[in-house]
């Protein structure tokens, strides 16, 4: 069954050349994401989780294996696949509105439709009133919301989130997690979130994929079968968290000792 926004990653491997010798970065990655699903990938830094997103978005096509979106092999970058980076990457010389509009530069919408959908997405991320503001005038949380709006404005089939909340303070982070959830419910976009924050992954996702490093591979898949709003303090939540941390290896000792 192929519905819009179905991602299929099969046997993906990736190597870097280090001093002339190939270093394996990704080892046989298989991931299936259903349309409209929210999947998180967690793992220690250097495990290649962000690399997977770079491959899926099309910034790097030097890999073995296959990546298909809705059954079609991906080729280069495309407006069907949006991404939000950890640094907001808003262009400093464009206003918030123009930054979001940059996503629609090559869309087939009419000028009027562009204007409307930009306004809708600015409202969606709660930034109405800040259309003409330059990025330096935005707080970190606001800039990241703008980046999310830019990722969504073209209505991609899949939105890749590369630690989008990683650089934010704890409170802003919690609040933006709520917003991500409500945006996901409204837009029904397939989402893949890469994070090293296990709580964040459990709180947001239908499924969590756990990776380890050297070489990067997926060691465990955990289905989070909890209704939203999830209670971060509940025993089930804690049990899932313990499972994930144990899989991530390094943490196992501390978890066992605790």
């Amino acid at each position: 069954m192929t519905q819009r926004g179905t991602l299929e990653i099969r046997g993906v491997e990736k190597h870097y050349d280090v001093d002339g010798r190939p270093l394996k970065i990704l080892d046989h990655i298989d991931i299936d994401v259903a349309a409209g699903e929210f999947v998180s990938i967690v793992g220690p830094s250097g495990c290649g989780k962000s690399t997977i997103l770079r491959l899926v978005v099309g910034l790097d096509d030097d890999y073995a294996g296959s990546i298909r979106l809705d059954g079609e092999p991906i080729k280069g970058t495309s407006l069907d696949r949006g991404i939000v980076f950890q640094d907001h990457r808003l262009l400093p010389w464009l206003t918030l509105e123009q930054n979001i509009g940059l996503s629609l530069e090559n869309s087939r919408l009419s000028a009027e439709e562009k204007r409307r959908t930009i306004a809708e997405h600015i409202a969606l991320v709660g930034l109405r009133g800040f259309e003409k503001v330059y990025p330096y005038q935005l707080s970190g949380g606001m800039a990241q919301r703008a980046a999310i709006a830019r990722g969504l404005v073209n209505r991609p089939e899949i939105l890749l989130l590369d630690e989008p909340l990683g650089a934010l303070d704890a409170l802003t982070r919690l609040r933006l997690q709520e917003e991500l959830l409500s945006i996901w419910r409204i837009e029904k976009t397939t989402m893949i979130l890469v994070t090293h924050d296990v709580d964040e992954a459990i709180y947001l996702s239908d499924r969590v994929l756990v990776m380890t490093a050297n070489p990067g591979r997926i060691v465990k898949e955990i289905v989070v079968d909890l209704p939203h709003q999830r209670d971060r303090g509940s025993p089930t939540f804690a049990a899932i968290k313990r499972d994930i941390l144990r899989e991530m290896g390094d943490y196992a000792v501390h978890v066992a000792a605790a």
């Binding site: 709660g126 800040f130 005038q137 949380g141 409170l171 802003t172």
Partner: peptide, 9 residues
Amino acid sequence: ATNSTFAVR
């Protein structure tokens, strides 16, 4: 968005 956490600088 004008709430304290997200206030413009």
